[in-house]
Write a protein that binds this DNA or RNA. Structure first.
Length: 212
DNA sequence: TATAATGTTTGAAC
DNA sequence: AGTTCAAACATTAT
């Protein structure tokens, strides 16, 4: 990277892409990564970029590099915050996995690139869907609502994050009581991912198995 | 102060 | 061969 010029910054889901003329650097902040612009921070940066008008450092992150650009390596229609986002594509991917749990598909970066555990919990609460629903059991119009709300919430998330007020707006994540019905929220480690899941057994619909 | 968690990859074990 | 699982990375709020 030394002496080379950055052509462009891009993002795909949680990936931050630094594009050079003949190669690409991918930063992923994982759980604990951070970046600083024109600021010092304790510790050695994994990647440090210096420009004519400032500098940019990345800490405690995953770094990958490859020859060539970023374009053909990513499904841009899967990025929930990208202009190229395609809800119809997401629906097709969901239809291909009727047995998958909602709490798993909302973390699947191939379907909802950029969605994470907080988004999963908040979106399911907002649209009143139980995390243990299988995709196939959820009515199509409700599935469309889920897909739409995942993108919507991502923009709310970003806005609140910038305002340092994200946590204040959590309705389910880390909460113990349902603000809609006042009953206790359930905290469980669900799905293939066994990630922390907060939900209301009363307000979030669990569709019955066909015939069951 | 100990614990758990906004995430993902890797490789061993089954 | 396909899956499942623990380990690894490392910071910070609670």
């Amino acid at each position: 990277m030394e002496g080379r010029e950055v052509i462009e910054f891009k993002t795909w889901g949680k990936h931050f892409l630094i594009c050079f003329e003949s190669f690409t650097v991918r930063i992923h902040l994982m759980l604990f990564g951070t970046y600083r612009i024109n600021e010092q921070k304790a510790g050695v940066p994994r990647v440090s970029l210096t420009f004519d008008n400032g500098y940019l450092n990345f800490y405690n992150c995953s770094v990958k590099m490859w020859e060539g650009g970023a374009g053909d390596r990513y499904d841009w229609t899967a990025d929930i915050m990208n202009d190229a986002w395609d809800a119809g594509n997401a629906e097709k991917k969901l239809q291909a996995r009727p047995g998958a749990l909602l709490c798993d598909v909302l973390l699947d970066q191939h379907i909802f690139a950029g969605s994470g555990n907080i988004i999963k919990n908040e979106v399911l609460y907002r649209v009143r869907l139980h995390p243990l629903n299988t995709v196939g059991r959820v009515p199509p119009e409700k599935r469309a609502e889920l897909i739409e709300e995942t993108r919507n919430y991502a923009f709310d998330f970003l806005r609140w994050k910038k305002e340092y007020s994200l946590k204040k707006h959590w309705l389910a994540h880390t909460k113990t009581v349902c603000q809609r019905c006042n009953l206790p929220l359930v905290k469980a480690y669900l799905g293939k991912t066994r990630r922390r899941t907060f939900y209301c057994n009363n307000c979030q619909v669990l569709y019955e198995e066909p015939g069951g």
